[in-house]
Design a binder for these strands. Structure first.
Lengths: 211, 211
DNA sequence: GCCTGTGAAGCTATTCACAGCT
DNA sequence: AGCTGTGAATAGCTTCACAGGC
């Protein structure tokens, strides 16, 4: 095989799609790459490359068909099928994420949530049924869940990640502030909020050249 | 000027530092690059490059002094001085972030929080005094705040970002799921959670080669 | 003229590989 | 022998710039 999709392209496609939906509702039928680029705050060349990656072609005279492109991105990302997600950790961050996903990312289904606190398990919190972590090996394969979000304290993150991978998870979005050691066939995205803030704080101090 | 620090290096330094602190408490005095690398789940060469960037040198025989390195990173990141942060948006995510920072990132001070909901303003929530957004132009310059975290719905994110920049903010950590158009001298880090989840879900489906 | 699609160039980030030190 | 520091190589991502089409 030759062609790989750059991860950043996937993230941008997600954004393009949301922008296109807004235009669809307004009845706009066609957009040029520079118009999409402007809304997404990227360069027009970037937009064309990204669309090239999913094999979608526009017309030089009219640009891209909003309707067909939205559909094309949707099928590429797989959002026409239900994508089941597991959430592990129902602390402050976990609850906020659950609420966020339910209201803002309806294309994902938060199929199951897990926590080790018995005061939380067995209840529905933020729209998600919370199970004890011991139920992971049973529920994940039974539901065919392949994607998990970790919102855990650093102490238990690695252990839960191992449990998830053993149960068949192939992609983890990790909010715990520790690195995870995972097999190479599991996709990992780290969102260490402390490190992000450190980065921003650092460059807020440094003077930067404008563009 | 010639040398620029790679943003990713800054994020990793934040991680190294936290790892070193744990070893300091255990009384370990020296570590080799491959030991730090193993804990951080990166390559030894990456660690040496990162430390080279801050001008810290180890010894081929003993490795890096945990104590001196921790200190060196701290001074480089500026964490010996108080770094004031403003948080804008006290919804579910904002509250979770505030709680998280107060307990897990004590080197940052959440100096002020802002929200436009009158039921929230004037109170202390998650350890932060919440002000109305109209107070931004007064408080930000008075406190000398240069860094802000945005946890807002997409509709108001751009407007609040503009207000913050006008008030002197030079770095924004954006959790709103929209791109922000900002002057080139303002550092921007986007943490669009929907896009992150989309990326992970996409690659959870695709088979990937191991390492 | 102004657009798309895309080879080539340019940047940035990471890893290799080895000289030099102890 | 096994480490660090680093030039050189590689990989990955973004932008340039232009051929080709309406």
């Amino acid at each position: 095989m030759k062609s790989e999709i750059p991860p950043n392209t996937v993230a941008r496609l997600s954004l393009y799609r949301r922008l296109l939906e807004a235009w669809l509702e307004k009845g706009t039928t066609h957009l040029y790459s520079h118009e999409i680029a402007s809304m997404a705050c990227v360069t027009p060349a970037q937009v064309r490359r990204d669309l090239m990656a999913i094999g979608y072609s526009g017309s030089p005279s009219r640009g891209y068909s909003v309707d067909a492109l939205e559909d094309s991105i949707g099928r590429f990302l797989g959002s026409d099928t239900v994508r089941k997600i597991a959430l592990v950790g129902m602390g402050n961050l976990g609850r906020a994420l659950a609420t966020y996903f339910v209201s803002r990312a309806p294309r994902f289904r938060m199929t199951a949530a897990f926590d080790n606190d018995p005061r939380k398990t067995g209840r529905v919190i933020a729209g998600c049924m919370v199970h004890p972590v011991e139920a992971i090996p049973g529920i994940i394969p039974a539901e065919g869940i392949r994607t998990a979000v970790l919102a855990l304290p650093p102490e238990s993150a690695q252990e839960m990640a191992d449990t998830l991978v053993k149960a068949g998870v192939k992609g983890i979005l990790n909010f715990a502030p520790v690195p995870l050691r995972l097999p190479g066939d599991v996709f990992l995205e780290n969102r260490d909020v402390t490190a992000s803030l450190e980065k921003v704080a650092f460059f807020s101090g440094q003077p930067r050249e404008g563009n």
